[in-house]
């Protein structure tokens, strides 16, 4: 009960302080809002693009073609060698024999075409198709080196994968993600600095009050509390605009853009509960930024 009374007394005191230093508080709130809005947008884009790259990555497979003359034992030996490679998902190795490949080709070809007639004429002995393993990898960045290792396995004829996607798209996405995070961290630092400044002025404005509090035997925790609560409020108030914008903006964009982001390749994540999670992250981030800023200043300037 005592703690609750102290807490609510300090909530009132923090709100009073925000209204007293309104212009500076507004500067902190606006800066927090801008930061959180950019963080929110970056988060939404990054989550949607991440979903796309994950799909892309999981669809990236290596086709391992085995010599067409390889015996059953040799084909099995290739599989054993593949299983020894760490980057290969051992539960996702799909084997297709020459006969299976012939059937697949036939089912995908028009029965009246010349190709159908040719393929259909292949027997067990003169089937030119090579048995293949379709494999997935764990780390997409190591796709090329994994393919190189596979190439060296005895009886492996050739290895194929979508080199363009791996070499061009994925590094671009990685760079975009890194740059986004650098900008976000920079903005967070600026916001913390502004909140520090607001709290520092509050401390100076209440210097005599703090001095009296110390002299009449009020604990350091209780002296610090209103400032930390003030920082918390600055962060929380700063989160209102970005949260509203992200929720409404994403729902509207989801409808207007027909569930696709920029291109039909990227399908947007469903708004619910996605926007709720993003909002919770923004609110928590606002609160943490506010509290870190104010606690740091209180420690520095109160020296108690």
């Amino acid at each position: 009960m005592k703690a609750i009374r102290i807490f609510f007394r300090n909530v009132g005191s923090a709100l009073k302080s925000i209204s007293r230093n309104l212009s500076l508080s507004m500067a902190s709130i606006i800066c927090t809002s801008i930061t959180l809005l950019i963080v929110g947008i970056a988060f939404v884009l990054s989550a949607n693009i991440n979903g796309f790259t994950k799909d892309l990555e999981s669809s990236l497979a290596i086709f391992v073609y085995v010599d067409k003359d390889a015996t059953e034992e040799e084909i099995e030996a290739v599989k054993s060698k593949l299983l020894e490679i760490k980057n290969i998902k051992s539960d996702q190795i799909i084997y297709k024999s020459k006969a299976q490949l012939k059937d697949e080709t036939l089912s995908n070809t028009d029965k009246n075409s010349a190709l159908y007639t040719i393929v259909n004429s292949w027997t067990e002995e003169n089937n030119p198709l090579k048995p293949e393993y379709l494999i997935s990898v764990k780390e997409i960045e190591e796709l090329a080196s994994t393919a190189e290792t596979i190439r060296k396995i005895n009886k492996v004829d050739s290895v194929q994968y979508s080199e363009d996607v791996v070499d061009n798209m994925i590094p671009v996405f990685n760079v975009v993600e890194k740059v986004t995070w650098i900008i976000i961290i920079g903005l967070i630092v600026v916001t913390i600095f502004l909140i520090c400044n607001t709290i520092r002025l509050t401390i100076f404005a209440r210097k005599s009050e703090i001095e009296i509090m110390r002299l009449v035997g009020i604990s350091n925790f209780v002296i610090k509390l209103p400032f930390v609560i003030e920082g918390l409020f600055l962060g929380l108030i700063g989160a209102i605009v970005p949260v509203t914008t992200i929720i409404l903006g994403y729902i509207i964009a989801y409808d207007k853009m027909d569930h696709h982001l920029f291109t039909n390749l990227i399908t947007m994540i469903e708004p619910m509960p996605f926007v709720i999670y993003v909002s919770l992250i923004l609110v928590a981030l606002g609160a943490v930024i506010g509290m870190i800023g104010s606690y740091g200043t209180v420690r520095k300037y109160l020296k108690i």
Binding site: M1, K2, A3, R5, I6, R9, I212, M213, V216, G217, I218, V222
Partner: peptide, 10 residues
């Protein structure tokens, strides 16, 4: 009462 209030007294 300032000091007493800040100690959480009723």
């Amino acid at each position: 009462s300032f000091g007493l209030e800040n100690t959480g007294m009723k």
